[in-house]
């Protein structure tokens, strides 16, 4: 398939790529834009390692052809925070032990950012449901649940300041 030009806004910056329309958003981010923080785990939308936010919705970037992402606004892990200035969700994952091997972590953090956008003070059930598309094989999820609660508290008190 021949390449076409697509524009998309990634982490607040407008980017142009010349790729076939069926190129996966995951590959565009990783190979064309060098944003390797988004990971591939299964390539079929089961594990959620490739989760990004597209126009505010949580999507598996392995299932999104670039033709569907043209003009969209994309948030990847690189746009969530920086090493010197962590987002409260990143900070909570670090403090609570929510990241072990780290391969599911970018997707899990984006799922959390999305969840806390919808439910600033989520219940246990909302947390379990909100993360059910993101598989983690290391933690048994308990440290991640704790991180989500901690991040929710931090963001709420941050918002009040």
């Amino acid at each position: 398939m021949s390449a076409r030009r697509f524009s998309l806004c990634v982490n607040g910056v407008e980017r142009f790529v010349d790729v076939p329309p069926m190129a996966r958003l995951l590959d565009v981010l990783r190979h064309e834009l060098g944003l390797t923080g988004t990971k591939e785990g299964c390539g079929e939308g089961e594990c959620g390692s490739c989760s990004v936010l597209m126009n505010g919705e949580l999507v598996n970037s392995c299932l999104v052809p670039i033709a569907q992402a043209g003009g969209a606004s994309i948030l990847t892990i690189e746009g969530v925070g920086e090493q010197a200035r962590l987002h409260p969700v990143q900070k909570a994952f670090l403090e609570c032990g929510g990241a072990q091997c780290g391969i599911c972590t970018p997707g899990m953090i984006l799922a959390t950012v999305h969840l806390l956008g919808k439910h600033p003070r989520p219940t246990q059930e909302e947390i379990h449901e909100g993360l059910n598309g993101n598989l983690c094989r290391c933690t048994g999820y308990m440290r991640i649940f704790e991180a989500v609660e901690k991040a929710a508290c931090a963001m709420e008190s941050g918002a009040m300041e």
């Binding site: 390797t36 969530v80 090493q83 403090e95 990241a99």
Partner: peptide, 21 residues
Amino acid sequence: KPVFRKEGIAKVCGAARYIDD
């Protein structure tokens, strides 16, 4: 003590580099 994971910041920022990266 619960000191933070050495490579933890890189992991939560998506900066940790795995083989396919």
